[in-house]
Design a protein around this nucleic acid. Sequence first.
DNA 1: ATAATAAATGACACGGTGTCACCTGTCAAT
DNA 2: ATTGACAGGTGACACCGTGTCATTTATTAT
Lengths: 203, 203
Amino acid sequence: MPKQTFYNLPEDKRQTLLYAAEKEFSRVPVYEASISNIVKSAGIPRGSFYQYFEDKEDAYLFLLSQQARTRQGNFITLLQKYDGDLFDAITEMYRLLLKELPEQENLDFLKNAFLNMTHKIENIFNRIFDVNENREQLKEISTLINKQCLNISDEKDLHHVIQIITSVTFHNLVEKFAKEMSYEEAMDNFNTEMNLLKKGLYK
Amino acid sequence: MPKQTFYNLPEDKRQTLLYAAEKEFSRVPVYEASISNIVKSAGIPRGSFYQYFEDKEDAYLFLLSQQARTRQGNFITLLQKYDGDLFDAITEMYRLLLKELPEQENLDFLKNAFLNMTHKIENIFNRIFDVNENREQLKEISTLINKQCLNISDEKDLHHVIQIITSVTFHNLVEKFAKEMSYEEAMDNFNTEMNLLKKGLYK
DNA sequence: ATAATAAATGACACGGTGTCACCTGTCAAT
DNA sequence: ATTGACAGGTGACACCGTGTCATTTATTAT
């Protein structure tokens, strides 16, 4: 959290600083961003930055959550609009996000936020469950899975199902570590989610 | 990718170096890890490190993929064991992973790998779709959603469904950026996955 | 024995971080 | 008007990490 001094700042100076920070975080991912660039661009001395923020991350998370907050509320509204259809609401939300993105001046900022290491790790994770190593394997898997599955009609669907399961598994794993869950807790969550997924896909 | 010189190294020296790197990446997340510590711990001069690897990330990704590779093959075997039941296979895989984790000497390494920034960003992302702001909202959402949904019986399930959708959405978003997909491509993928999810949950 | 090639080495230039002793401006009390 | 106290401003500095490169050393081929 920014320090009190940050909030005591006159509006224009605060905006200048935030703008400089956003510019820097748009240029490169957080871990490559430098405070030196921010203060240079904002025209404030180095020491002042530390008067306002704990460190680089502090400023970054403030910006991120500030941007997130502007989207608050949308979801409920959309849910009402689509009469409780969760998927229609979320699809609309996703669509809006993608649609607005190219026009958004903070596109690079968001891009960096989402790319930030994550995809590298997900790629590695995908490798653990890699089923695309060669066509033979995929055929084999397809045959095996079709014994059980109702809804997977073609290869594209199979790929997507694996995507879904991978991302949910990944999410569970990250959550387990982040919230320091016990083995039992983690398995319990995982099973609940897998069962929900299962219902839709099985004979 | 490590350079050729790395592979030319005598086995014991290579192991010492890898061990030192793993130790450092277990101590802190990649972006905090330092080459200085690795070379000090491995007892090699700084310049040598750059003889073997491009940079820190290079060594890190090598270690990660090396560890991932040891799990290769498991998945197909499990799939056969469970006669093509995708969920049983993946659940078993997850279970094994969690079960083995505490005994694994590289626990901290894996922990850092999964925590590495990701959860911070996911948390922010969750905030965008935040439906847990207050009980009232959750009730409201629950009522709305139950008009459409078949399988969500209690609040816990609702929470998990939202988790699933969030993580799939998140995954799609990261993928879109990582693979520089067009709007159409991204929406297409997203819709396919949402439809697969939908089938299981709707009246 | 010699040349050629590959690898090893560590000092160094560069750039970034966070701190701290000191400076400045403001404002209430005298 | 003067003082002191205090919040905030400032930038030089100590420290640490990166990647490079000229030089040295080892290895191999001729």
